[in-house]
């Protein structure tokens, strides 16, 4: 195992983590501020990817496609919040889970109805394709590097938004005491719609970025959603900082676990047995990480209380 391969895997883990952060940020804000479990967050990821693929096919522009993903997901998020989610804030979590699960089915079949059952094509633009050579002779795809940078930039933007702006103050206040900020004259209904649309836009943007290197198809959001829930549980529900740290931890654990564990077992087992035991354990590694974190800090790394 060379050091170059290891560095490449660390970059892969980082890129995966940054993508997870975009999903988890919205999820953790929505749960933290509104107390809502939104299973349909993965559907918004899918909406973003489909909007991007549709726009890219029509215009040929990747930048327009990314913009379309933001607009489409934010709009879908706002509509869903106004029509469905709004009625759920006072209900218990089971009702929320039921209603948002129904939304998954509606989004999935609706998307199939519009776009058909076959995966769509969305590709990396010419100017971002191919590998670049990093210092030390590491060849790494330019697009993945770009994803890392965009993700980190969005994370910085979100921190600035939360820490420095009026909306950020309201969000933080909403997390600590929902009733109180309503009583102080903040238009809580509008704030909720805004947060929901913001979370949706981030998820849709992640869907578009990832859609270009994976497949744009119905149901693409649900596996990511599960990981995003793991991330916010590890990071502490409601904490953006927790979402970032949790996402990168999960990304690195998943990638390096899948890479290193089989090799570790191969030092004292025969190759094929090591492969199967290592792969099985690697698949569990993030859940083991989650259990470990919860054991030490039951509210997550940056959770309140």
């Amino acid at each position: 195992m060379s050091i170059i391969l290891l560095i490449e895997q660390v970059l892969n883990g980082l890129q995966f983590g940054v993508m997870l952060f975009l999903m988890a940020a919205g999820l953790t804000l929505i749960f933290g501020v509104m107390g809502l479990i939104n299973l349909a967050h993965g559907s918004l990821y899918m909406v973003g990817a489909f909007a991007a693929a549709g726009t890219a096919a029509a215009t040929g522009s990747f930048v327009l496609a990314l913009a379309a993903s933001l607009v489409a997901a934010a709009t879908a998020g706002a509509i869903v919040e106004l029509t469905v989610i709004r009625r759920l804030y006072d209900r218990d979590h089971l009702d929320q889970v039921l209603a948002t699960f129904a939304l998954i089915l509606i989004f999935s079949e609706g998307t199939r109805w519009i776009f058909g059952s076959f995966p769509l094509f969305l590709d990396i633009p010419e100017y971002l394709s191919g590998p670049v050579t990093l210092p030390g002779g590491i060849e790494y795809p330019l697009y993945r590097l770009t994803i890392i940078l965009i993700g980190l930039a969005i994370a910085a933007g979100l921190f600035a938004l939360i820490a420095k702006t009026r909306i950020g103050i309201q969000i933080r206040a909403g997390e600590s005491d929902r009733e109180m900020i309503g009583a102080l004259g903040v238009n809580i209904a509008r704030l909720y719609t805004l947060i929901f649309a913001l979370g949706a836009a981030l998820a849709g943007f992640a869907g578009a970025l990832i859609g270009a290197i994976q497949s744009v198809q119905v149901g693409m959001g649900e596996p990511v959603l599960i990981l995003a829930f793991v991330v916010i549980v590890i990071g502490g529900i409601g904490s953006i900082k927790g979402a970032l740290v949790g996402a990168i931890l999960v990304g690195l654990t998943d990638t390096l676990g899948g890479f290193l564990l089989p090799r570790l077992f191969a030092t004292f087992m025969d190759a094929s047995a090591a492969m199967s035991v290592g792969s099985a354990l690697a698949a569990m590694s993030i859940y083991i990480l989650m259990a470990g974190v919860l054991l030490v800090r039951p509210t997550g790394l940056f959770g309140g209380q």
């Binding site: 895997q9 892969n12 995966f16 993945r144 290197i213 994976q214 693409m220 990638t255 890479f259």
Partner: peptide, 10 residues
């Protein structure tokens, strides 16, 4: 699985 960066590196 949808991300194969790790496998491709290997």
């Amino acid at each position: 699985q949808t991300d194969y960066a790790s496998e491709i590196a290997q």
